[in-house]
Design a protein around this nucleic acid. Structure first.
Lengths: 342, 342
DNA sequence: CTGAAAGCGCTTACAG
DNA sequence: CTGAAAGCGCTTACAG
């Protein structure tokens, strides 16, 4: 028997028909127990694996999910937000548990990715990951829904959105940051990050922080808000821009850790002490947050659970079952950058 | 026409036979130019995509490569070495360029992964990534070769290895580290990392550093070598163990940046100043190396090029063409941890 | 509980 | 340059 063994090979060896082999392998209840055992033993011994192409063709599905990671439109060898890496691990593991293979691809937002997967039967459903301008994105999501391509995305969870989103409670996370900064005595809190409906996650973080301040009789000052994308150099530039405004501030809430780390460099280079002069809080708890000096206080999202939920929801959708929007709780890790620990 | 369009749909619309559509789409030279254009236009308009399962079944290949990332046997939600992330990006892009889809999976070394892919036609070839005990690994590589599964791995490039390896010039990198430490006046250099044939990459880095020292009339002292895996806590523990030996040293060459960063924490917590008391050099240039305080001097591997080479080599192997072992050059980024900059 | 038959959507000799 | 035919290896009604 040259080449890979087929179900027909096994059928011959087991003295049964090929469909019976197929049934036995798929665990059909209408196969005699003793027959099944014989077939399984032979399959095991030949190291037989069901041919994915044949099976997929016949069943009209791929047994595969696709993870699309959107990169910010930086044309260089772009660094994807490290926040997504643990999620990647969690997603791969969850796929394995659900018997799904995982295709991965990096996309530009501008790419023509929306037709690529479903129509070619490469994947039964899509997982969409990546920050970026939501409004620019939205059109394609609508198109996916029209095509009937099952998909889930990580991002802001909003009422009337095309498709299914799973995200963390960004408002709650912002509130945690605001409450903490109030607790350590800060009042003039700058916000670094694009707080518009183009970046609804950032906007929610802003709003949450503002809520916390308002509950204490204060509020965020728009004059202390500077746009920034989730990247170190963007945070660096935003902090310089903030300093250039000449307004007093005693804390920075950055929309992401990358922004926070970039901002810390800019502030420190300008002679400001962290946390004495400026307390910093970030968002994401990427590995670098612990390594930064001082270590960064930040809002933690449960990326592991996030990955699992994304896969579970998508598997439901692929099977035509309902799945729910979910908003995951956040928590705060307090480190030295906010001055709350020695 | 409900459902996805097929080549037969296009054939009807174009008034040709279905095989002609197939030929036109695949760019066969024996299709009339005007016919081809008509077919392509219709395909475009219907948003037709070749069914991957059908095509793969007929052609007996998958058009897919699989990336297997091996995790260290830590049972927790293990953190994959961040060194591999840019490589991941590079690999996905290179696959896209070669028209290959990329399947990704995290594996334990102990898993039974070697039969999973080839036999099921899920992927035509494997890319193996991940540090780990090489000797434990080797048996499965041999098995892959026997099965005829095309694969490439990132790792130490050695003479009589099963299969094709691509790696960086670890000896050269170690030499750079050694020469640099000599140049900044250090003589008693500790090495943190498992320098045995279980971890040939680390061993090569050790040897390279030793070579550099010997060329200047010195050498590495085995009494200053402590085993460590590529993880922060392992580096932390190794540094403590080194301190416990009570031997004088004025520099640490860590087998990886993660080890170096863990070690820096341990040394600093024990009152040692970096670089004044101990100069540190790492290996990999992960993002955290820049963020560490002081910023870490380290040996850079060209991960972008590495990813491209891995994919190119694997595509050659899949097509039955020869591919070569390659050893990529390394370079040194000097930062504050080695005391060479202000 | 099992088998004979059909068919998923392509690609590729084989004729013309 | 184009078409009719076969077949990749499965899964799933349909009979029995």
């Amino acid at each position: 028997m040259r080449g890979k063994p087929t179900s027909l090979d096994i059928a011959h060896l087991a003295g049964v028909s090929q469909p019976t082999v197929s049934r036995a392998l798929r665990g059909s209840p209408m196969v005699n127990e003793e027959t099944r055992r014989r077939i399984l033993a032979i399959a095991e011994q030949l190291n037989y694996k069901v041919d994915k192409n044949a099976s997929g063709l016949r069943r009209q599905h791929a047994g595969t999910l696709a993870l699309l990671l959107f990169e910010d439109p930086t044309p260089d060898e772009s660094h994807i937000n490290p926040f997504f890496f643990p999620m990647l691990g969690s997603i791969t593991r969850a796929c394995a548990r659900h018997g799904q293979d995982l295709l991965i691809s990096f996309q530009q937002f501008s790419d023509d990715w929306h037709a690529e997967y479903g129509d070619s039967h490469k994947a039964d459903g899509l997982i969409l990951l990546g920050y970026g301008d939501y409004l620019a994105h939205q059109g394609k999501l609508t198109k996916l829904v029209e095509q009937g391509t099952p998909f889930v995305r990580w991002g802001a969870v909003m009422p009337d959105q095309p498709g299914l989103s799973i995200g963390c409670d960004n408002v709650g996370g912002g509130r945690l940051a605001g409450e903490h900064l109030l607790a350590v005595g800060r009042r003039r809190i700058a916000f670094l990050g694009d707080a518009s409906n183009h970046y609804p996650e950032f906007l929610d973080r802003y709003s949450g922080c503002d809520e916390a301040l308002k509950a204490a009789g204060f509020s965020l000052d728009r004059a202390l808000q500077v746009d920034a994308e989730s990247a170190e150099d963007s945070g660096y530039a935003a902090a310089l821009s903030l300093l250039g405004r000449g307004l007093p501030f005693d804390a920075v809430f950055a929309a992401s850790d990358l922004i926070a780390i970039g901002a810390m460099h800019a502030l420190q280079e300008n002679g400001l002490r962290i946390p004495e002069d400026v307390a910093i809080v970030g968002f994401d708890d990427i590995p670098a947050a612990r390594i930064a000096t001082p270590a960064l206080t930040t809002v933690v999202q449960d990326t592991i659970r996030a990955g699992e939920l994304l896969v579970e929801a998508l598997v439901h959708l692929v099977n035509g079952e309902p799945a729910e929007r979910t908003r995951l709780p956040t928590s705060l890790v307090v480190r030295k950058s906010s001055g709350a620990v020695a």
